[in-house]
Amino acid sequence: MLKWASEKLQPSDLVHVRSTPSRQSWKQDGEKHYGYGFAVNEPTLLAAKPGKEAEPAKSSLAAKRSR
């Protein structure tokens, strides 16, 4: 997906992203810390910069859903 984003996206493009949230916790220096992350499952270019056509991402999840 990073390759798709670097090739297809430009500043000011409007993107919709489906993601899976996750929560982590770990101990460091005797203290418990918490963090949140998001795994991008399906990005979609909604509106491209003027002069560029919108094109959906070709992610593995999108391919699985179309089968």
Rank of each mutant, 00 (worst) to 15 (best):
M1C: 09
M1H: 15
L2C: 12
K3A: 12
W4L: 08
E7T: 14
L9V: 09
L9S: 11
Q10C: 08
Q10E: 06
P11D: 04
D13F: 15
L14G: 02
L14M: 10
L14F: 14
H16D: 01
H16Q: 04
H16S: 07
V17D: 01
S19G: 12
S19R: 04
T20L: 06
P21F: 12
P21C: 01
S25I: 02
S25V: 02
W26I: 05
Q28H: 08
Q28R: 07
Q28M: 03
D29S: 12
G30A: 06
E31P: 01
E31H: 13
K32Y: 06
H33Q: 03
H33V: 00
H33P: 05
H33W: 10
H33F: 11
Y34Q: 06
Y34S: 07
G35C: 00
Y36N: 07
G37D: 10
F38W: 06
F38C: 01
F38L: 01
F38H: 07
A39G: 07
V40S: 02
N41S: 02
N41R: 11
N41Q: 08
T44V: 03
L45G: 05
A47N: 10
A47L: 14
A47M: 12
A48L: 06
K49V: 14
K49R: 15
P50N: 10
P50L: 11
P50V: 12
G51R: 11
G51N: 12
G51K: 10
G51A: 08
K52T: 03
A54Q: 04
E55M: 01
P56I: 02
A57E: 06
A57V: 04
K58A: 08
K58W: 01
S60I: 11
L61H: 14
L61V: 13
A62Q: 15
K64H: 06
K64W: 10
R65N: 11
S66F: 00
S66G: 09
S66K: 15
R67A: 08
R67M: 00
